[in-house]
């Protein structure tokens, strides 16, 4: 689905989101119940660098400052963090983390945050945006990833054929929507044939109060150990204190 189709299906009552030369998504959509949704994001596969972060983060902080409980939708199609010596020199890690922190603050302040991945979502830019939300959904043509298989083959010095074969049997490293769903990163895949506004409202109605992604990964069989390990560490910390 293209961004304009997504937005029209999400906001039958209208929205004020226009394409921008910087490929950022900033605006407000109207809900059928008369309420609004604040929308931020990144489109067209654009890489996220330090300049892209600031308007998004500022918008999120303004929403928090305004108060209320308006939900925030984070729409993402990004090839990843901008790979640039200049952005690294200026501290890109701080900028990306800042955006994630702003979204997490909004969530803590009562704004439900929903991530929507419709194109690519890669590595550091994925962490700064869609993975910093209360719940992440995707459309079927989404391509979330940490790294593509050819690059992974280069870095791990493993033959690409071996990685391709392994990726069919384990979701733990293979790029793509199925794998990311199985490990618990993506809560639901929306059906593009049905109205998105209805699916969005259904997602909003079931926002988890806590981070349930490791439990989801265990339930779906894609990340069997993480939830149990985290619990064992927390239990031992508690036992040690009481001892």
């Amino acid at each position: 689905m293209k961004l304009d189709e997504i937005l029209s299906s999400l906001f039958l009552m209208g929205h004020d989101i226009d394409p921008r030369p910087d490929h950022l998504i900033l605006g407000t959509g109207k809900r059928a119940n008369g309420g609004t949704v604040e929308v931020v994001g990144i489109a067209d596969g654009e890489a996220l660098g330090i300049e892209g972060v600031l308007p998004l983060a500022r918008r999120v902080l303004d929403i928090v400052a305004t108060g209320g409980k308006t939900p925030i939708l984070v729409i993402v199609d990004t090839q990843g963090q901008l790979m640039s010596r200049r952005d690294e020199m200026l501290g890109l890690n701080e900028y990306l983390a800042h955006l994630a922190k702003c979204l997490l603050l909004a969530s803590r302040s009562g704004h439900a945050t929903v991530g929507l991945n419709y194109g690519k979502a890669v590595a550091g830019a994925f962490l700064a945006t869609a993975l910093a939300t209360d719940v992440l959904v995707a459309l079927p043509d989404a391509e979330p990833a940490v790294m593509d298989l050819p690059s992974m083959a280069r870095v791990t010095k493993l033959p690409q054929e071996k990685l391709e074969a392994l990726s069919k049997t384990t979701p733990v490293f293979a790029p793509g929507l199925d794998s990311m769903t199985k490990v618990g990163a993506i809560a639901q895949v929306w059906d593009p044939a049905k109205p998105l506004d209805v699916q969005f409202e259904a997602t909003l109605a079931t926002i988890p109060a806590h981070d349930v992604r490791d439990a989801l990964g265990a339930e779906r069989g894609g990340r069997l150990l993480a939830a149990g390990i985290a619990r064992r560490v927390a239990d031992q910390a508690g036992e040690d204190r009481r001892a």
Partner: peptide, 16 residues
């Protein structure tokens, strides 16, 4: 990278 999806998600969980 051998556990890329689990690792990426662990970072997201750590940050949260």
């Amino acid at each position: 990278l051998q556990e890329a999806n689990a690792g990426e998600l662990a970072v997201a969980e750590v940050m949260r």
